[in-house]
Design a protein around this nucleic acid. Structure first.
Ligand SMILES: NC(=O)c1ccc[n+]([C@@H]2O[C@H](COP(=O)([O-])OP(=O)(O)OC[C@H]3O[C@@H](n4cnc5c(N)ncnc54)[C@H](O)[C@@H]3O)[C@@H](O)[C@H]2O)c1
Ligand SMILES: NC(=O)c1ccc[n+]([C@@H]2O[C@H](COP(=O)([O-])OP(=O)(O)OC[C@H]3O[C@@H](n4cnc5c(N)ncnc54)[C@H](O)[C@@H]3O)[C@@H](O)[C@H]2O)c1
Lengths: 227, 227
DNA sequence: GAATTGTTGTGAAACAAATCACAAAATACG
DNA sequence: CGTATTTTGTGATTTGTTTCACAACAATTC
């Protein structure tokens, strides 16, 4: 049965991403050990939060000694299955698809866009090193590269239809840039990225602050801000 | 004092966005009234949640009669300050910036990218109808158009420096695509969009599901999914 | 090697969000 | 007009998350 299953990324997981980015930076700077409050300062959370998050993912440090950055990063690689490569397909080579296909950070994190697809024959040529195929080759490529995750950058109107096809071929996770809620069975993970909403919510909070500043009522403001 | 102030968009606000998108669709289909459970079904939440959210934003319906779609949309326009236009600047006309500058949905929602900026002289010409200026004209444009919100699509390394400049000229909200935590005073709203993390977390949840499926342990799975 | 210091790890407490349960209101129907 | 039905709105309850407080422990000092 297909239904709407919005996927909400847990805050603790989001924070783990922050810690990792921070650890990578510290490591580059030659640092070898961190304390929970170091990470806390760098990422804008509290040190208890850091330790609680680590405990959720069963990461242990040494009392008084803090955490070994290498150990931590190793643990996190395990958590995120980063020890192996992940093959991704990207559907829709329009403005957004093209930008994403050129984004080097994906590869740096072992996420390889192995192929991209578009319905438009004019777009079906190699672009920035990654092949652009016609939709008819979707099944073949997904199977060949054992792809489980797709990026969907097609127009709103086609998104559900394309998602259905992806799932027929075994895709289990979709990052969806189209501003629609896809209907999928509960075992498929959908992560909706809605950039209009992201921009609009900043406008919302900026306006709220401007208004509140006028009233000198800071309490309300901080209730909606999290560190 | 500059510090890290991550901005977390409230879940209730995110849901209001969902409701609105749904209402717009229903209106196009000629529907005039909705019940909380209609919206709930369409957006994958519960009907109590819909009503609680509405009550948070002091939206009232009529008992038995449900809600008038036009009323609701009007209320929401107020909430999001959509009755007036919002001028936005975009810094960094690389891959991502170019895609964003061409995105028509921003304009449809009264968010106008009035100008874009890039440090690279080769990029400083008109592109897809929007002017691309050199950074030296930032102050002038921000003041002329009373811009309060910016989109930041410059490389990681320059992000903080550019953010500082934006804030010097009065910018109060930033949608930041660079994978760094910007240090800003607490009255500035930062919304970090980290697409690597978004993709990686889908991989994370997909893997978790695959593993859990093997164990036929669904309980754990659903604890991390929210509707 | 005992006392001191600094840091982790985690139960308990406080806080926040979602769900439940139902009274109140509006409408429909006999 | 009164009874049944439907849906809202919201207190009460449950569930989830963050912060607090401190015991446990490792390292350091004397
Ligand atoms: N451009 C942006 O900055 C931006 C920002 C946020 C969200 N989005 C969303 O991302 C999606 C893509 O946006 P865009 O600006 O790249 O649009 P676009 O029109 O430039 O690109 C869409 C691409 O999808 C292809 N396509 C259409 N139907 C298809 C199908 N059935 N199968 C395969 N390919 C198909 C088209 O040929 C085109 O190349 C849209 O849903 C849009 O709302 C875009
Ligand atoms: N391309 C993507 O799909 C993608 C996805 C997610 C995040 N991002 C992030 O978005 C940002 C931009 O990515 P991109 O792929 O467009 O990179 P890019 O290199 O294509 O574009 C960056 C642009 O910023 C300009 N620039 C550099 N320094 C500047 C400065 N000090 N002031 C003004 N302009 C400056 C450059 O001239 C260039 O045009 C990066 O931080 C990247 O990590 C990109």
């Amino acid at each position: 049965m297909k239904q709407i299953t919005k996927y909400v990324i847990k805050n603790s997981l989001k924070r783990i991403f922050l810690y990792r980015a921070c650890l990578v930076r510290l490591k580059l700077m030659g640092v070898e050990k961190v304390f929970s409050y170091t990470l806390a300062n760098e990422t804008g959370v509290t040190s208890e939060q850091v330790r609680k998050d680590f405990s959720e993912f069963s990461i242990k440090g040494n009392k008084r000694g803090g955490y070994e950055i290498n150990d931590l990063l190793g643990k996190m690689e395990d958590i995120f299955h980063r020890n192996k490569d992940h093959n991704i397909v990207l559907i829709g080579m329009g403005n957004m698809g093209l930008a994403l296909s050129k984004y080097s950070k994906f590869v740096q994190r072992n996420m390889n866009i192995v192929a991209t697809f578009d319905i438009d024959p004019f777009k079906q040529k190699e672009r920035s090193g990654i092949p652009v195929y016609s939709m008819s080759r979707l099944k073949e490529i997904i199977e060949r590269f054992k792809v489980k995750v797709a990026i969907l950058a097609v127009p709103e109107i086609s998104a559900q239809e394309v998602a259905d096809e992806l799932m027929r071929h075994g895709i289990k996770g979709i990052v969806n840039f189209a501003p629609v809620l896809l209907k999928v069975p509960p075992d498929v993970v959908i992560n909706n990225v809605n950039l209009c909403d992201e921009l609009e919510s900043v406008i919302y909070y900026v306006h709220k602050q401007l208004k509140i500043d006028g009233f000198k009522n800071l309490e309300l403001l901080y209730r909606d801000m999290k560190y």
